[in-house]
Design a protein around this nucleic acid. Sequence first.
DNA 1: GGCAAAATACCGACCGGTCGGTATGATTAT
DNA 2: ATAATCATACCGACCGGTCGGTATTTTGCC
Lengths: 200, 200
Amino acid sequence: MQQRSEETRTRILEAANRLFSQAGYENTSVAEICQEAGVSKGALYHHFPTKQAVFLALLDAWLAGLDAGFLIARQQTQDVPSAILQMADLVGNVYQTAEVKPAILLEFWIHALRDPVIWQAARAPYQRYLSYFAELIGEGTRQGSLQPVDEPLAARVLTSLAVGLLMQSLFGAQDVNWQHESRQSIQLLMDGLLPRRETQ
Amino acid sequence: MQQRSEETRTRILEAANRLFSQAGYENTSVAEICQEAGVSKGALYHHFPTKQAVFLALLDAWLAGLDAGFLIARQQTQDVPSAILQMADLVGNVYQTAEVKPAILLEFWIHALRDPVIWQAARAPYQRYLSYFAELIGEGTRQGSLQPVDEPLAARVLTSLAVGLLMQSLFGAQDVNWQHESRQSIQLLMDGLLPRRETQ
DNA sequence: GGCAAAATACCGACCGGTCGGTATGATTAT
DNA sequence: ATAATCATACCGACCGGTCGGTATTTTGCC
């Protein structure tokens, strides 16, 4: 029967997600994951060849979820600014759902820098997101709902904002509602800081 | 004589900076730091009570450097937008100087989340920066060089941008000049994305 | 200055404990 | 039966930190 097997695998991933988020990859032992999952070490190494493979599976799942979210956000909106704001909400939602602990994103990032395998797994989607955002912004410009800008640059700025907000939400005060913060931040980016005259 | 002592301490910190940046805190053993520094284990534990204390000393030094940079940036400029752009250059400079490896910033961040000692050491400066930025923006508004905005929000947006750019520079393409990218990003934030009409 | 005593700086072998991964056998489903 | 799934005992490597002892510098005294 493959249902029991599937369930075991899921329990392992959920446990690993919790523990990696809380204590980090290095500080989480395989034994702890097994205990948290209520599963033996043999079971874990039956489903995953290495500890890293568990981590990689989590990364893949997270990226798949992000993909799905972006797709939905685009479909639910008409003009580009709305779509971007919708995606900002998506990022904002990460802070509330207990499902995906934001801290594990830091783990993904830091390991991508050091492990070529993780790097490859994370870089391709990252590039895809950047291209997607640039394309989206170009679409907005053509619509007239955004002013003409350097599209790849704007895409990186958007990404920076999202990443930076996530980092700050991890580290920042509880008295800030990061759910709304992300939307407001994007709004501020769109409006701009400088007074409304020709500046360039 | 305290010169030899001082030199040993410095060598340990430099070695730790290199190794923590390359391999991360957990993946760098005390023995490796000693080897890289050309110093015995006894020497290290003579200067620092624990491995964590070495890390903390690095964090303090990094924050002190940032403080100094901000101070200089403010003194060298007249109006607020220029000061902000100058500070963006400061962040941009981090990518070029081999002195401080940007990757160690990630280490700082991730450990601040898990270690209360690190958390306290990093949080106070972080709050200070946010307040400083908010004050700076308020000053710009009073000058008329910035439009009136929610100042703490704008400060967090600025910080997000800086943090996000740093993260992307770690992870991103080499074909992007992150030195200029930070300045351009801030410029884009100031100009705004939306077409120039009244939007709120 | 010269010299012994005290303090500081440093060395490197060693220890208790942890970790990722393995080997082997038991259990379960088909 | 037999192949997939899981449990348990175990291994070798490694790690942070300690400790007894040594080298070097500073201090106190003449």
